[in-house]
Simulated scan of single mutants.
Amino acid sequence: MIQPSPVALRAVELSTDWAELARQVLAGYQLTEEDALGMLQAPDDQLLEIMAAAYKVRHRHWGNTVQLYFLMNAKSGLCPEDCSYCSQSKVSEAEIPKYNLLSREKLMAGAKMAAERKSGTYCIVISARGPSEREIRAVETIVPEIKQQYGLNVCACLGLLTPEQAQRLAAAGVDKVNHNLNTSREYYPEVCTTHTYQDRVDTLNAVRSAGLKLCSGGIIGMGEKDVDVVRMAFELRELGVESIPLNFLNAIDGTPLEKNARLNPRYCLKALAMFRLVNPASELRIAGGRELHLGSLQALGLYAANSVFVGDYLTTSGQAPSADYKMIEEMGFVVTKTEDGGSCG
C-alpha cells in the first residue's frame, strides 16, 4: 500500500466524521481530491463508519434495489491492442478461448440466459481496437430482436468508436455504451501504449453526442497510486457517467500484470465507498474480481454499489447466480430491472 502523503493525512484528520460528510454530499457538496484520498486511506477501524456513510448516499438515490447485468463475450481474443491487464490482448499468453463474432443464435441464447437470470441489461462485448463494419451491422441487426423478444436493455462494448458508429448504435436501439477509462490519465501509459487515454475520452464524447448513456469505470490494482484511483473517479464525475463498473484486477497468468499483488478487501470497500460519494447518483457496479478480492466481505460492497454482474466475466468465472441472489436477499435488498433509480427522498 502506498504510504499516505501529508495532504492525504490531513484529509484523514479532517474527515473522520463520515456521516457528516455523507450528509453534506446529500445536500449538494462535491468531494475534493483531499476528501477522497482521506476516505481511501482511512484506518481500517473506520471502515464500518465509511460504509454506513456510503449507504446513506446509495439509499437516497437507489433505495435498496440492485440491478443485475449479464455479460456476453461475443468475440474473444484476437485483439491488436497491448493493454497489460487483459488476457485477450496481443501481449497476453493466457490460455483463453479465441473466436470471431458469435453467431446470431449464440447471441440470442445469451440474451435468453440474461433474462432467465433476472438481468435487466445484456452486455455485448467484443475484443478489438474498434468494431469492423461487419460487427457494427451484426449489432444493428440483433439489438432490436433482443429488445423485442426479451425486453432487455442492451449495453455495447465494442472498443473505440467514431461519432458515426455511435450514432448507428443509438439508431439500432442500444441503450448505453461501455468504454472504461481504466485508470487516471497520468497512469494510463503504464498499462497501454497502442492507444491513448484521450482516445477513450473521445469515444465517450462521441457516445454522449449520439444521445446514448455512458458506462465507464476502471480497474484497481494495476500498480497505480491512490491518487490515480481518485483522479479516475473525478474524471468520471466530470464526464457525467451514468453507470460505473469498478473492477479489481484479476491478475491472470500469461498477462504482463500476472504477478501483481492481491488487494485486500477492506481497501476495495473503501474504494467503492469513495466512488459512491464522488459520484452519488451514478449506478455503481461491483464488477470483475469481486469474488477474488472481496471474498467474505462481498455483501458489504452493496452498501455502496447498487449493481453486480450475474454469472461469468469475459475470460474468468463468477460465482453461481444462486449465491448472488442469496447475498442480495440476505442484505435486505431486492433485484430490479429498472435503470431509473430508486430515490427515497
Rank of each mutant, 00 (worst) to 15 (best):
V139W: 06
V154R: 01
D17G: 00
E329D: 15
F248Y: 12
E283P: 05
D340C: 12
M232R: 08
A287H: 00
A273R: 01
L158T: 03
L284R: 00
Q165T: 14
S209C: 02
G289F: 01
D340V: 13
L300I: 09
E20H: 08
Y325A: 11
F333N: 11
A281R: 02
N100W: 09
G318I: 04
I244N: 02
G120I: 13
K213Q: 12
P43W: 02
R200W: 03
F70G: 13
D228K: 09
L40P: 01
A156C: 05
T196I: 14
V207Y: 00
Q149I: 11
N260K: 14
A172N: 02
Y188M: 07
M108I: 13
I96K: 07
F248V: 12
D324S: 12
E329Y: 15
A128E: 02
H293K: 04
K270H: 09
K106T: 15
I126Q: 07
N100T: 04
R168P: 05
A261S: 14
A210G: 02
D202F: 07
G289P: 05
D228A: 08
V230R: 00
T338E: 13
V7L: 15
L101T: 06
A36E: 12
A111H: 08
V229P: 04
G211A: 04
N100G: 10
L47D: 05
E135A: 08
E133W: 04
G254Q: 07
Q319H: 07
T203W: 09
P256G: 02
F309H: 04
C86F: 01
S184C: 03
G223H: 10
D44E: 12
M331Q: 15
R185N: 10
L263I: 00
R237Q: 14
R129T: 08
Y197H: 06
T315Q: 03
G28H: 02
M222P: 09
G295P: 05
A166S: 08
P189A: 01
T316C: 09
G63M: 04
E140P: 06
S15F: 02
R58S: 01
Y69S: 05
A111F: 10
Q88K: 09
K56G: 10
C268S: 12
R23H: 04
R231A: 08
C79M: 00
A206S: 10
L257K: 09
G254D: 07
T183P: 06
A42D: 12
R231T: 14
S317T: 11
C86N: 07
C123Y: 01
V154L: 03
E145L: 14
E330I: 15
A233L: 01
A305H: 00
R10W: 09
G318Q: 02
P245M: 01
E133S: 05
Y325M: 11
G120C: 09
T203I: 03
N279G: 04
